[in-house]
């Protein structure tokens, strides 16, 4: 195991709306390692985007980090290594703005809405570079052109004066990547960066991201609902359901020996290109409303393997081995299960 770059423990993010509190993220534990790709998978509304936005402290109102730690390892200004807790930082403060874009940067799903329509591509990239480094406008422009070239844009010196609407979807996403990479971050968060793209463009963007990761050695947190994309790029996979990580392991294990009933069901429900046309086994029912979360295990109303304790006891995180953990009562040993049940009965 390489050293962790970001250690998240018991992260809770709640949205305080007029209709009630939405517990978007309910106790997420994650470790993101330097130079590796972690894929966060889940259906819409499972809290994967909210959790990733928390790492940059850009959660929209009325969302709030209620509890938890996000320990981020970085080089401090005097060159020594320090560990800071991102969760404690003020979202509007100076220290987080030093990290945002410079050490942790983000790519969003729809490049057209995340790029400014009013500014040229070059303006937007150089702004980022000049904010975080001590460079002259000319130097910044040179490095912006270099970065655009690196992400595979033909004739970058011309494109730098173009406005984003003149570019195709794939080109825009390349510009977004160039912008995110321009300050050489140690961690890149990509929130469904290829969902809006065609398959051939998607393949190119995925390969580009892996190549850049290899060259620059950054950690990549990739958020997606597309299991095919996960299988292509992930080192590790974390499966989320209703604000919790239900299974975590390396890609091979999660895909070939999934343990959690939700992961198993998810893998059975995707159509594959195979010799035989496969039967799809959909998951029964639908993701419950965030206002009415089920008791006990969140997945139990849709689970085919549930038993009598599932609606009472909240499963703890069980480590099956060093790299594989699952949150399901089936894998908790009997002792832990009864003590949990007692605790639930008393509490």
């Amino acid at each position: 195991m390489t050293e962790p770059l970001l250690e998240v423990s018991d992260l809770k993010i709640h949205f305080f709306t007029d209709e009630g509190v939405v517990k978007a993220v309910e106790g997420v534990d994650l470790v993101i390692e330097r130079g590796k790709t972690l894929c966060l998978v889940g259906e819409s509304g499972c809290g994967k985007s909210v959790a990733s936005r928390a790492f940059m402290q850009i959660i929209r109102k009325p969302g709030k980090i209620v509890s938890g730690q996000m320990l981020f390892r970085r080089k401090s200004d005097d060159g020594t290594e320090e560990i800071i807790d991102l969760a404690k930082m003020d979202p509007k403060g100076y220290p987080i703005r030093q990290i945002r874009g410079k050490e942790i940067s983000m790519i969003f799903q729809e490049p057209m809405t995340s790029l400014s329509l009013m500014h040229t591509v070059g303006h937007q990239i150089t702004e980022m570079i000049r904010l975080h480094t001590d460079t002259t406008p000319t130097e910044a422009k040179v490095s912006a052109i270099k970065m655009l070239q690196r992400v595979g844009i033909p004739r970058p010196e011309r494109l730098i004066d173009e406005y984003p609407f003149r570019l195709s979807g794939g080109m825009r996403q390349r510009v977004m990547i160039a912008m995110a990479m321009s300050c050489n971050p140690t961690m890149l968060i990509a929130d469904e960066p290829t969902t809006a793209l065609d398959v051939t463009t998607q393949a190119q963007i995925l390969d580009l991201m892996l190549e850049l990761q290899h060259d620059y050695g950054m950690a990549l947190l990739f958020i997606t609902h597309d299991l095919g994309v996960v299988a292509e790029i992930a080192d590790d996979v974390a499966v989320m359901y209703l604000g919790r990580i239900v299974e975590r392991g390396d890609a091979d294990t999660v895909f070939n020996e999934p343990k959690h009933p939700y992961t198993q069901a998810l893998l059975r429900s995707i159509p594959k290109i195979a010799m035989q046309r496969d039967e799809l086994e959909p998951i029964k029912g639908m993701v419950p409303s965030p206002f009415r979360r089920p008791t006990g295990c969140q997945f139990h109303p849709r689970c085919a393997q549930r038993f009598n304790l599932c609606n009472q006891v909240e499963p703890a995180n069980t480590h099956l081995n060093e790299n594989h953990s699952v949150r399901c009562l089936l894998y908790e040993d009997a002792e832990a299960r009864t003590s949990n049940a007692e605790a639930a009965a008393h509490g």
């Binding site: 398959v199 051939t200 998607q202 393949a203 190119q204 995925l206 390969d207 597309d226 299991l227 095919g228 994309v229 299988a231 292509e232 992930a234 890609a251 091979d252 895909f255 070939n256 893998l267 995707i270 594959k272 290109i273």
Partner: peptide, 21 residues
């Protein structure tokens, strides 16, 4: 080319697919 761009939903088959750009 279209077929080669489709992600294969199994990490073990990652290397089998040679992408056509």
């Amino acid at each position: 080319a279209l077929m080669s761009a489709v992600p294969v939903a199994n990490p073990r088959q990652r290397k089998q697919n040679q992408r056509i750009y």
